[in-house]
Design a protein around this nucleic acid. Sequence first.
RNA 1: CGGGGUGUAGCGUAGCUCGGUAUCGCGCCUGCUUUGGGAGCAGGAGGUCGUAGGUUCAAAUCCUGCCACCCCGACCA
Length: 491
Amino acid sequence: MSLGIPKRSEDYAAWYQELVKKADLAENSAVRGCMVIKPYGYSIWEKMVEVLDKMFKETGHSNAYFPLFIPKSFLSKEADHVEGFAKECAVVTHYRLKNGENGEGIIVDPEAKLEEELIVRPTSETVIWNTYKNWVQSYRDLPILVNQWANVVRWEMRTRLFLRTTEFLWQEGHTAHATQVEAEAETKQMLEVYAKFAEDFMAIPVLKGVKTANERFAGAVETYCIEALMQDGKALQAGTSHFLGQNFAKAFDVKFTNKEGKIELVWGTSWGVSTRLMGALIMAHSDDEGLVLPPLLAPIQVVIVPIFNNEEQLNSANTYASNIVNQLKKLGISVKYDNRDNLKPGFKFADYELKGVPVRVAIGPRDIQNQTVEIARRDTKEKKVIPLEGVAEAIQNLLNEIQENIFQKALKFRTENTREAKTYTEFKKIIEETEGFVLAHWDGTSETEKKIKEETKATIRCIPLNNTLEEGVCIYSGKKSIQKVVFAKAY
RNA sequence: CGGGGUGUAGCGUAGCUCGGUAUCGCGCCUGCUUUGGGAGCAGGAGGUCGUAGGUUCAAAUCCUGCCACCCCGACCA
């Protein structure tokens, strides 16, 4: 079809790009690297926010809001942190515009220069720890369990809708604790929350693991992550949770008096997921006909399309449909009845497939005659006619089945695309020919990881949690290795 | 930021080599017929040719700068 999108097998990048636009998720904006998230795309993000926010609250966190601007001096207080972010910061230098004297239009008023320049937050650790300093005196003030939903800016060289944009939306949790044990437990707890969200709601299987020093968050002691595999064989980091140790407490002088009356530094964590999850969702499940959305995150779970030849038939379809709509709404299912008369059913079918609506119900004169409906599922494209009696329950079951099926499908894909390499030759062959996850022995050094990255573009995505320790030799250096780690080319 | 490509109506495009005021399809508007997998016919509206300069009697077309987007690198969630 001319209205369709490119095939994944022919041009994966173009497929993704076109899908995002044609499915009305987002478009490029007048500002380089920044996107406009359109209502349909945003409603998916809202679903994600709703679920995650509930999970954060259930684990004891509260939302707060910290400023968009960070004094330049804050960023430089933690040495690794500033080094990690300095290259991609937007900086505010002036606070006023004026009309140019030579009719060149509006210009920056040179007299309105800021005393101290402000950084547009690339992440908020610094401004938050500067605030926490005032919040903490006693062990009784701890823990602080705060999350914020915000936008951040990272001046990227190359952007891709949802996957990497200059400005993006995310949540960042920032917690402060009295003990290392507690902070480490928090870090892992939030990793579990992310993994659960990815698997149970997004229907994307993820590897939980820890990052190597190279891939660690700037300023963290340890970075944990969930890694997902996309359909083109590339890995996508879908969420991160950082154990910050006492690094930010040291940098911002955040101390407390413990039960014994001794003064100690606070332990910290931070954790986040972003609109990048939208990219993961799209790339994990969708096909050449368009989006495939997991029912639990689909803004419209069921669409009902009437088929009619005249106004009389339309009227009876309206009546027939409103009964079904009411039943579905009672079960908490989001449903849209599309009885626009200027579009043919076939067009609507294709359009809702493009938008990834999990279940489509078609009702026509024959159905009304026979007291049936035709239901079609987006994930497998199967259609069948079922009785009107009990239709809502049948659809509810089908939604559950689709949610499970797309997860299993993604899991099967990942299993089939996870391979083991015993030698470097074998490793290079896999990375070049099939991509996917590659398990291989590694000597634990940054030098080896960097060499492998230079030669193959593959990086260590993570060292899986609960990895089985087994002696071996590093595929690159031949040195002793204690475990296999996960390599892949990454987004 | 380096290399390559693209920019013409809401979307996709032809025209550019060889300068003469813009082609086609989809969509949009009106009417009639249609509607179980992307409807048909008839009529109609819509364009500072990305942008700013330059060359010329005349620029979508030739020249220069700038901007945006895409692909490939370096950086990153």
